[in-house]
Amino acid sequence: MPPNAEETCRRLIASAERLFAERGVDGVSLREINANAGQRNTSALQYHFGDRAGLLRAVLARHQPGIEEHRHRLLDACRPGSLRDLAAALVRPEAAKLADGRDYLRIVEQLVQRGQPAADPGHSVNRWRSMVASRLSPEAIRLHQRFMAIRVTYVELARRASAPPARSEELFTSHLIDVVTAVLAAEVSEETAALMSARDAGSR
């Protein structure tokens, strides 16, 4: 009986997700992923996904639609002026993956640390960035406090995802929202502003 293409893809994606999380997106060969998925045909992965980037997109695509829908829903419900609502809209959709996507969280943290999160113009994080920008000072925007909030979110979620599952993630999630809110709300001190001005003057 010829192999089922859908089942082959499912096995390859599951294998890649697990190995990318454990050893890094660039730390495992496509041949290893293929073998780990039980594929005797050494070209199966390339046939279905083309290359590493195509396989990575397929891994992310397993989780992102639900995250996107969840985040857009939270952004729609944000109260005017509430940084905590915005922090929750960033954190909660990803934290929900602690229940069924811990390897996914470890992979996305790798991408964020490399400065290349998988995003397109319709990505909910881009909408989040725009909404946050209207609530930050120009100095905070220049200091990339939005990206700092994103990085804190994914680093902490990946750390949590690497630990044994907890009975409940509610306290962790609420505290992480508090931390992200604090990052967004942090005022730029006079010292930092002066150093930033000196840096800008020296680059002219």
Score class of each variant (00 low, 15 high):
residue 23 R to D: 13
residue 197 S to R: 09
residue 152 V to R: 10
residue 140 A to I: 04
residue 109 E to V: 04
residue 185 A to M: 03
residue 93 P to V: 12
residue 157 L to K: 01
residue 18 R to L: 12
residue 46 Q to R: 15
residue 124 S to I: 02
residue 128 W to F: 10
residue 1 M to D: 05
residue 80 P to H: 11
residue 200 D to M: 10
residue 141 I to G: 14
residue 75 L to A: 13
residue 68 E to L: 02
residue 98 L to S: 02
residue 16 A to S: 14
residue 160 R to Q: 07
residue 128 W to K: 04
residue 115 G to C: 07
residue 136 L to W: 05
residue 77 A to R: 15
residue 31 R to K: 14
residue 111 L to P: 03
residue 177 I to M: 03
residue 167 R to E: 12
residue 126 N to I: 11
residue 69 E to C: 02
residue 10 R to W: 00
residue 22 E to Q: 15
residue 55 L to V: 13
residue 149 A to R: 04
residue 19 L to M: 14
residue 21 A to I: 08
residue 85 D to V: 14
residue 138 P to F: 13
residue 129 R to I: 09
residue 139 E to R: 07
residue 165 P to E: 03
residue 175 H to N: 12
residue 50 G to Q: 12
residue 72 H to G: 08
residue 179 V to E: 05
residue 24 G to Q: 11
residue 184 L to I: 01
residue 148 M to T: 08
residue 62 R to A: 05
residue 197 S to F: 01
residue 73 R to L: 10
residue 187 E to K: 06
residue 194 A to S: 06
residue 136 L to M: 12
residue 22 E to W: 07
residue 54 G to N: 14
residue 118 A to D: 13
residue 35 A to Q: 13
residue 75 L to Y: 07
residue 83 L to C: 11
residue 63 H to F: 06
residue 162 S to Y: 03
residue 70 H to G: 05
residue 78 C to T: 14
residue 79 R to Q: 15
residue 198 A to H: 04
residue 169 E to Q: 01
residue 198 A to T: 04
residue 120 D to C: 15
residue 146 R to H: 10
residue 112 V to L: 08
residue 193 A to K: 02
residue 72 H to K: 13
residue 188 V to I: 13
residue 180 V to W: 02
residue 70 H to N: 09
residue 123 H to V: 06
residue 81 G to T: 11
residue 54 G to K: 12
residue 117 P to H: 11
residue 137 S to G: 12
residue 197 S to W: 00
residue 78 C to A: 15
residue 148 M to L: 10
residue 92 R to E: 15
residue 86 L to V: 08
residue 89 A to Q: 05
residue 62 R to Q: 06
residue 53 A to N: 15
residue 196 M to K: 01
residue 161 A to N: 03
residue 16 A to Q: 12
residue 154 Y to G: 01
residue 167 R to D: 11
residue 141 I to N: 11
residue 46 Q to F: 11
residue 9 C to H: 05
residue 91 V to P: 00
residue 83 L to P: 02
residue 143 L to R: 03
